[in-house]
């Protein structure tokens, strides 16, 4: 069902997910998730709508805590620490595990303030100008906005806004970057820029990306997890992990028929 991923790509693991079952209220949304997410690699989650890719992603920074009915079973460890343990502070965890969302969502503040905000609330004492420039260079946006840092974050294009969100996320020096369909609202050129940026970012960060775009998964990722959805008795959908392997294997030589059908475009 899943191969020994860390050995396959030759690195240590960031996340380790065991027997993950994720509920909204009494509804089981995703079942039987086993994952080993390698450090400083790009791991892609693919699968049809409703298969629970985003649900699993949002467990890694405990963003699902904000939904009162969400419930997690099983174990998720990050660098050996159970992140759902009582001793782990979710706010601190979220500083270390940054996130970029499907729709660019800059704060309605200046470009500078967007980047500086996370550092400010986390008590950054260094030179803010340096930090902002560093983060904007890191997200390949600096040259485009260096003369209008005081303009609203909402005044730039969608692709620039998404890179601003990436700058905002990396400004607080996270260890992991979760990306929830970061390119689905972008045009192909902006998408390409973000993909190039991801290759750059993976030198420093562990990246997990949810995507509906299979070409994107095959282009950018090292590991790929394929989720599928099955209809439930109550008319809902329940997701489950079908196969998790190096991206090459998933796209060229998958072990499951469902994976083969999905990546070759026969369904979904």
């Amino acid at each position: 069902m899943h191969s020994n991923s860390a050995a396959a790509v030759g690195t240590s693991n960031a996340f380790h997910v065991e027997k993950g079952n994720y509920y909204y209220g009494s509804v089981l949304a995703v079942r039987d998730v086993f994952l080993e997410i390698p450090e400083k690699k790009i791991t892609a989650f693919i699968g049809p709508s409703g298969c629970g890719k985003s649900t699993v992603l949002r467990c890694f920074n405990r963003l699902n805590d904000l939904i009162p009915s969400a419930r997690v079973e099983g174990k998720i460890t990050y660098r050996g620490v159970d992140i759902y343990d009582k001793s782990v502070d979710a706010t601190e965890l979220r500083r270390r595990i940054g996130m970029v969302f499907q729709k660019p969502n800059p704060f309605p503040k200046s470009i500078y303030e967007n980047v500086a905000y996370g550092a400010r609330i986390n008590g950054y004492k260094g030179d803010m100008d340096v930090l902002v420039e560093r983060a904007l260079r890191g997200s390949a946006l600096w040259d485009e906005v260096k003369d209008k840092l005081k303009d609203s974050g909402l005044s730039i294009s969608g692709g620039q806004q998404q890179r601003l969100c990436i700058a905002r996320a990396i400004a607080i020096e996270p260890e992991v970057l979760l990306m929830d369909e970061p390119c689905s609202a972008l045009d192909p050129i902006s998408t390409l820029r973000v993909e190039e940026l991801m290759q750059e970012l993976k030198k420093h960060y562990t990246i997990i990306i949810v995507t509906h775009n299979m070409q994107q998964a095959s282009r950018v990722s090292d590991m790929t997890a394929f989720y599928n959805a099955q209809a439930t008795d109550k008319g809902g959908k329940m997701g489950y992990l079908v196969e998790y392997a190096p991206t090459q294997t998933i796209f060229n030589n998958p072990s499951q028929v469902a994976t083969q059908d999905y990546v070759s475009g026969r369904f979904g």
Binding site: M99, F101, N105, F107, P108, I121
Partner: peptide, 23 residues
């Protein structure tokens, strides 16, 4: 006020009150 703003704030490690106050 769109929820995406609150989630963006929380994902950066804000507390609830910081999100309410700042955004």
């Amino acid at each position: 006020i769109p929820d995406s703003l609150r989630i963006a704030g929380m994902a950066l490690g804000s507390t609830r009150w910081q999100v309410v106050r700042d955004h």
